[in-house]
Amino acid sequence: MKKIVLLFLVSFAVLQIQAQDKITKTSPRIMILATGGTIAGSGESSTKSAYTAGKVPIDDLLNAVPQIHNYGKITGEQVASIGSQDMNVVTWLKLSNRINQIFKENLADAIVLTHGTDTQEETAYFLKLTVMYDKPVVIVGSMRPSTAMSQDGNRNLLDAVMVAASPRSQGKGVIVAMNEKIFDPRDVTKSSSTNLETFLSRNFGPIGLIYDGKVSYYYQSLRNSSKKFDVSKLTTLPQVEIVYGYADASPLTVTCLSNSPIKGLVYDGMGNGNFNEPVGKALAEASKKGILVCRSNRTGSGRTTLENEVDDAGLGFVVADDLSAQKARILLMLSLTETSDKIKIQQNFFEY
């Protein structure tokens, strides 16, 4: 009897191995690129909020979520180990070039990028504009470190891998997956400094949902994603700064920046990107000096409209449409790598 039971167990184990081998051969190759952030953060207490970002290496992240191996051939690569408040243009260029290289050399079918939430939306939008392939690039993070009792990183990482592996994600390109929702990088924003469900798309909502192991899409952005900015030969980007608008604002910041070597300036104005008279004069002077001035608005949703309350043509300004100031800065930097023509740059803001 014991021999029969033993034979059965051995046969069952062989069948399981064969089944797993069959799954592995047909499953997608998913490469996880790690940059640090809270999802790789470590703290001394499981119940306190203090932690240090970017301390947990990629291998430990993968080992903490063994279920991800059910969805594909998973490999990991550490690209950076920083908190996303320290994200910079050099790392953006490195990420974009690495992702393009991976797809060009057919090293993976999809990519998951772990990232801190502070600048996650900015990195996502930069990659949306510079990654030349439409294969899935799923950007994910967490609001609580890996050592927290209620950490959200493991679930988010598993969901991101599900999204990357899903046939429904083919052709979607760069997307953001957080808290069982999928967002277009152009529209997503971090809305709370502490809440787990911080990522929102205030104007349009998520493009898809992740629930119970299933990935569902409901719509996609019609903004131009076919034309990309080629950054493969760049080591830096034109410098663009942001100035915040508020009641009784001084023109001093704009004036100081106008005397610096910046190439562009995004004014994050009140209401429909408005400014008071002193700031308006300083912005006009900046424009005359050849600095590309772009108006956005600080409200968090809605559009900044051209030629509405401001004589944009007369002042030489462009508007961000419905882009936030931080994303308008990215599009302006990339646009300035190709042209200084204000008409063409304005068209970029209406198309991208």
Rank of each mutant, 00 (worst) to 15 (best):
K3R: 14
K3P: 05
K3V: 12
S11H: 14
Q16P: 08
Q16K: 15
D21Q: 10
K22G: 07
I23S: 10
I23Q: 06
K25M: 13
S27P: 14
R29F: 06
I32R: 13
T35C: 08
G41C: 05
G41L: 11
G43K: 01
K48I: 13
S49N: 12
A50V: 11
G54K: 13
K55G: 05
L61R: 07
Q67H: 06
H69R: 14
N70M: 05
N70A: 04
G72F: 07
T75D: 14
I82M: 15
G83S: 15
Q85A: 15
T91K: 08
W92P: 03
K94C: 07
K94Y: 06
S96D: 09
I99F: 02
K104D: 12
E105F: 03
E105S: 09
A108V: 14
A110Q: 12
T114F: 03
G116D: 13
D118N: 09
Q120D: 08
E121V: 06
E122T: 00
Y125T: 01
K128G: 07
L129G: 00
L129P: 02
M132I: 02
D134V: 04
V137D: 12
I139V: 11
G141M: 09
S142W: 06
S150C: 04
V161K: 03
M162E: 01
A164G: 05
A165Q: 12
A165R: 01
P167L: 09
R168V: 04
G171A: 12
I175Q: 06
V176S: 05
A177T: 10
M178P: 14
K181N: 13
K181Q: 15
K181A: 08
F183P: 13
D187G: 15
S192P: 10
S193P: 06
S193R: 06
T194S: 15
T198Q: 07
G205F: 13
I210F: 09
Y211L: 13
V215H: 07
Y218M: 15
Y219C: 07
Q220G: 07
Q220Y: 08
R223Y: 12
F229L: 13
V231E: 06
V231R: 11
T235A: 11
T235N: 13
T235V: 10
L237G: 12
V240P: 00
V240R: 01
V240G: 00
V240D: 00
E241Y: 03
I242D: 02
A247I: 08
A249V: 03
A249P: 03
P251A: 00
T253C: 00
V254M: 00
V254T: 00
V254G: 00
C256T: 03
C256E: 08
S258Q: 13
S258M: 10
N259R: 03
N259T: 09
G269A: 01
N272Q: 11
G273E: 02
N274M: 14
P278S: 06
P278V: 06
A282E: 01
A284D: 10
S287R: 11
K289Y: 09
K289Q: 13
L292T: 13
V293W: 01
S296Q: 05
N297V: 05
G300D: 12
R303V: 05
T305N: 14
V310C: 10
D312Q: 11
A313G: 09
L315E: 03
F317R: 00
V318S: 13
V319P: 12
I330E: 05
M333N: 02
M333K: 07
T337G: 05
T337A: 04
E338D: 01
T339F: 10
K342I: 15
E351C: 15
